[in-house]
Nucleic acid binder design. Structure first.
Lengths: 238, 238
DNA sequence: CGATTCATTGAGCGGTATCAAGACGAGTGG
DNA sequence: CCACTCGTCTTGATACCGCTCAATGAATCG
């Protein structure tokens, strides 16, 4: 964990073109670099931020994975979402300054932390930063709607099929061209997120296997029949 | 339906302080006014935009109400959300230029239509516009997460209770101080949105009444016990 | 290797969908 | 004012899906 020294620290990053860093040239880069802590390490189960705490930073995930969750009442927590390398955390909290959720590392992770208030001051001098921000927010909102649609499906199998497709899509830039997918979360976390029981998720996976749409080995999934999976995902009968 | 002539057309609007119009002074207002169609009328069941069509406008609802929905496969459509006066439509579609959903009026409505690409060109000269946009996107994302949490609740009663609380909160500026709430959508639309059957929603309402948390008369709901409703909303046992 | 965690599979029960019928309100016309 | 219609909401009976509890199997790690 340290501040960025030169633009080259960021140019080598595989998420450079999606990051605020891409907006700056060599001359102006030092202004951005000062507000970023690069390559902070988080061990599994460590919290990035906590529900109700002050939300002053945006986080770019460079490797690993996170989940966000909130505790509504005693004993019942709900997982809001999963976040992959290249994605941003804190978008929904930072404008209001209060964290809506707790973010926890699901595996050993590296993140860059950007001071939001300082970033805002740069928007006046770099209009492209506003364009990027709105594009990122629009994308996040679109994914959120798609996820909402996934979760409100009537049957367990269609929810799981849809979830697999969504994670496949989102992990696009991380995967090779193959139809392999690695799910970073446990069955219980996935079930919680989808509003199901862990056992039901297992059974849904078993069903997708028996239909010949996928093969699986614990958290590794291989898609055999993309169209079949999409059919299952969009059909109420499954 | 017409273009705006002077800033006074907007200053009298009850949503002025939440609208892009608030960013401009009298001098600069004409630049904004040219890109807005004010007070367009939509009858019940008319579409504001359609899934897959080009998304070039943002819409501010002045009166009435809308629902957004998408058709995934033949015969199965899903309702993504409901929109109240003062809220914006098109946020998630406009950055990509393609409408993710179809928006349909649930009652006779008035909307203002803002040309998004033209609005973007104004951001360079009016940094406050970017601030407002990000605040609006952040808020929309936060609501989306809250709605997602509502829908993923395990039991029908808690989903309905949570939905009532959310609509109560969102309609805050529209209501008087009382605990009355008017739901703009039919039971079936609500059920579709929540991933339930219409009959189940009816039964859930009946349960909330029998518990003494609310009274109801068709689409009119009166909240008697806010804490009871919140308890029901956050508890898996209901 | 034992301990732990996670994933799977089975048996029984409860909640929700489905199908069907009835109640209620708004609107229409006699 | 009443009878009629239509759409929406409610209520009831039954079947099915998914949750719960419990046991087993598989993978990881000290």
């Amino acid at each position: 964990m340290s501040n960025i020294k030169t633009i080259n620290d960021c140019k080598n990053c595989s998420f450079f073109n999606r990051c605020a860093a891409s907006v700056f040239d060599e001359e102006s880069f030092h202004r951005f670099g000062k507000m970023v802590d690069i390559d902070k390490e988080y061990a599994t189960n460590m919290d990035l931020f906590q529900q109700g705490g002050s939300a002053r930073y945006l986080y770019v995930i460079k490797s690993g994975g996170f989940k966000t969750h909130s505790s509504l009442s005693i004993g019942s927590a709900h997982i809001h979402g999963f976040y992959l390398p290249g994605e941003l955390l804190g978008l929904e909290s930072v404008p209001r300054g209060v964290s809506l959720t707790t973010a926890t590392a699901t595996e050993k992770s590296l993140v860059c932390r950007i001071n939001y208030m300082q970033l805002v001051t740069l928007r006046k001098d770099f209009p492209a930063l506003s364009d990027l921000a709105l594009s990122i927010y629009g994308q996040a909102l679109a994914w959120s709607q798609i996820m909402l649609e996934c979760i409100s499906r009537p049957s367990a199998a269609s929810r799981v099929a849809c979830f697999v497709l969504i994670m496949f899509e989102r992990s696009g830039s991380l995967r090779s061209k193959s139809n392999d997918l690695y799910l970073t979360m446990s069955r219980n976390d996935m079930a919680n997120h989808l509003g199901l029981a862990g056992e039901t998720v297992s059974r849904a996976f078993a069903k997708l296997v028996s239909l010949g749409y996928i093969t699986k080995n614990r958290r590794h999934v291989h898609i055999l029949d993309m169209e079949g999976l999409q059919l299952c995902s969009s059909n109420t009968a499954f």
